[in-house]
Amino acid sequence: MMIALDRASLRYGPILGLSPTSFELSDGGGITGLLGPNGAGKSSLLQLLSGLLPPSGGEVKVFGQAPFRNPSVLARLGLVPEGDRLPAGLRADRWLRMMGELSGLSGQGLKAAEARVLEVVGMADRGHLPFGRMSKGMRQRIRLAQSLLHEPELLILDEPFNGLDPEARLTLMALLRDLAGRGTRILVSSHILGEIAQLTDRILLLFRGRLLAEGSVSEIRQLLDRHPVELRLSGEAQALARWAVEQPELAALRIEEGAVVISVRSPRDILPRLQRAVVAGELPLRAMDPLDLNLDAVFQYLTKDHA
């Protein structure tokens, strides 16, 4: 197993960052998404796996060994942490050279690795710039470049899409897919299901420091679809209510002034039907507002469901 957690937990003093968690990831390439709202414990888990922190309880093994300050594990993994962490005032190429040397590269191998990663992240002609003169997107690319220098077998990315423009997001996704296709195991965290769903074949669902579920994207989607979503439909309330009660996904309904608030399961099934009815002129709908589509609400529901 490339990764094996056995009731591994992490405490920050009195605060529990990660409840005892167990899961395994097999060897070989592929992308695994770590999904959860902010504060779910994603970063805690990634810090355990990347050897930054030792577990407070249980056992973490990466490549069969405990990763904390373990050179033989660290030589095989790369980490792209969240946030801007590049030292001010240094040039990207020189800093990458240092990171390469700290990864055990030297001589021509180091030069080739530096040129390769700058090329891969599309910074070949801008590597000489100091970090202070780089945009957020450029710095994110350099953060990714430093993690690829030593061609890690396991690449860990913490919220890598935060702050990226759509084009940079697509470029990064393509790059990650390419790396995974060439045998790199990638673990990527996000609080946005859509991002993860575009990337990955497997999802780990974390909430409040607990591993809530693991499975394929469709399995997780089904799990999420069980959560009733509230929608406010504005228009002729009586007519909208008449339409709504005929829908099998309806879980609850209440009428407000000039609107009806419906609670539906599997919104992905009911929404196309709603759209067709409106287009056909069968439904006097003026506006539709989702009330609780945020991931946090979904996770709260799942937690209750699992309790």
Binding site: S50, G51, L52, R69, P71, S72, L74, A75, L77, G78, L79, P81, R85, M99, L102, S103, G104, R143, Q146
Partner: peptide
């Protein structure tokens, strides 16, 4: 942390 996740001592 970027330095500490390297295999360097």
């Amino acid at each position: 942390p970027l330095l500490l996740v390297r295999p360097a001592p």
